[in-house]
Write a protein that binds this DNA or RNA. Structure first.
Lengths: 135, 135
DNA sequence: CTTGCTCCTCTAGTGGCTAGAGGATGTAGC
DNA sequence: GCTACATCCTCTAGCCACTAGAGGAGCAAG
């Protein structure tokens, strides 16, 4: 068997910070690793794979709860993949919603900023708009 | 002079929750109000205006730090409004950035989800993509 | 043997609130 | 006056996903 890796190595290989790895262990997202004689955590390739999975899912915007479920599913190759699909679709819908919101927001901000930067605060369009927004 | 309003009334008028008003007071965003004999906060119209300003700015996505600056500027009508404009433009740029990011994300999620929901986890496209994302 | 890196644990902070405990006061109806 | 009930008070802790830092132990190279 291969030597266990120290946390710093796993961190580099998986692209996840040392502190974050310990955090994931604390919340039960990563299994508690064996310790060396000097009380250091020892990891193997499987841990690196799991951390990469987590990081990729984070990059895709999944929250840790969703990732917890996805990890559980990934460990059951015979199960149907409906559930994983549902998680992904739900997230996709949320991202779409967010884009819609932000796009509306951007339009409002653009309208607000459009008029030039000249003048005193007393006539400042930005301040005015915020002060008098409908309702 | 008008009677001071209790916090619940201000809350209703400004559309800001009671707990949030107290929170804003705690972080110095809202001036510490006078108290009635029974130790209750007493507010006036000016406080309602300020809270509405804060809420509108929050709705526009400004963070409390930016709002703190905008409030300070709003109180100086003779100052030039460049600074307020800059704050708004900076925020607008951030929103634009976020939209770009989320749009890219959405494309990735769409590609991931596109293939049907059929099959076992072992062939699940969603899990596969997350497990093997580049790098 | 010293320097400097990595590792350990533990605590507290980030932003912007929200929820709840536990108690005092005010108001309305009877 | 009494009884509900709403509203107010303070204080603490929780949310999410980390991050930062203190304070100390161990390990490898020169």
């Amino acid at each position: 068997m291969s030597q266990p890796m120290p946390i710093g190595t796993v961190s580099r290989l998986a692209g996840v910070k040392v502190a974050t790895i310990r955090y994931y262990e604390g919340i039960g997202l990563l299994p508690v690793p064996a310790r060396t004689g000097a009380n250091r955590r020892g990891y193997d390739i499987e841990d690196v794979r799991r951390l990469k999975f987590i990081r990729h899912a984070r990059d895709l915007g999944f929250d840790l709860n969703a990732i917890r479920q996805l990890l559980a599913l990934a460990g059951l190759p015979e199960q149907p993949c409906d559930e994983a699909d549902t998680i992904a679709r739900t997230h996709l819908a949320a991202v779409g919603q967010k884009i819609v919101q932000l796009t509306a927001l951007r339009a409002e901000l653009e309208a607000m900023v459009e008029r030039g930067t000249h003048g005193r605060i007393a006539e400042c369009h930005v301040i005015e708009v915020i002060a008098n927004l409908n309702e």
